[in-house]
Amino acid sequence: MHLDHHRHGPAAVSADAHRPDGSHRALRIGLGGPVGSGKTATVAALCRELRAELSLAVVTNDIYTREDAEFLLREAVLPPERITAVETGACPHTAIRDDISANLEAVEDLEDTVGPLDLILVESGGDNLTATFSKGLVDAQIFVIDVAGGDDIPRKGGPGVTMADLLVVNKTDLAPHVGSDLARMAADAKAQRSELPVILQSLRGGSGVADVAAWVRERLAAWTA
């Protein structure tokens, strides 16, 4: 009975692919990773890259401010009504994994107010290497680390590095300046993740967010197929 989507009121089962009116809901992709690894910058770049072709919205989970949401507003990557900030009570990992209530409310409200939506990006507050998204909240997750955070992070593993559907190693342009070995990071990530994809990215040059955007488009094609 939980998968019956003809009931009235909000969906009780969070992972339902359908909204209460029976329509297909938006694909939800989570972006997690340590503080300062470039989650918000990646979200902003994805919005700029995809907003012309998709109906998009973003949920941010700031730890104690609304800075991530305000950054996205200031950068004008999306109209303000498409960006929602969730407050996490000092525990960002709780809000995306153990108790996803407030985030579910945010994604449902966005679909109600600015929908229909194709894609909702849910950005976690910067947290530790064990912080992953619940499958009840997102359909796929991206874990963002950066070369300046230490080139041993892929080797150390942890749920974010090993389980995320996509691992992004960000700020590759900084590698020579911080003494990080990109080849070693890529090899360690490959060893930890076997067939799961890894993208090395610099938002300050080269192809920017294009590879991550291509991965998102593939997920979206599979979701709507």
């Binding site: 996490t88 709780t94 108790d99």
Partner: peptide, 11 residues
């Protein structure tokens, strides 16, 4: 206290 009903974000 771990019942997932959003209470963790409120003081």
């Amino acid at each position: 206290g771990r019942f997932p009903a959003g209470g963790h974000a409120h003081s």
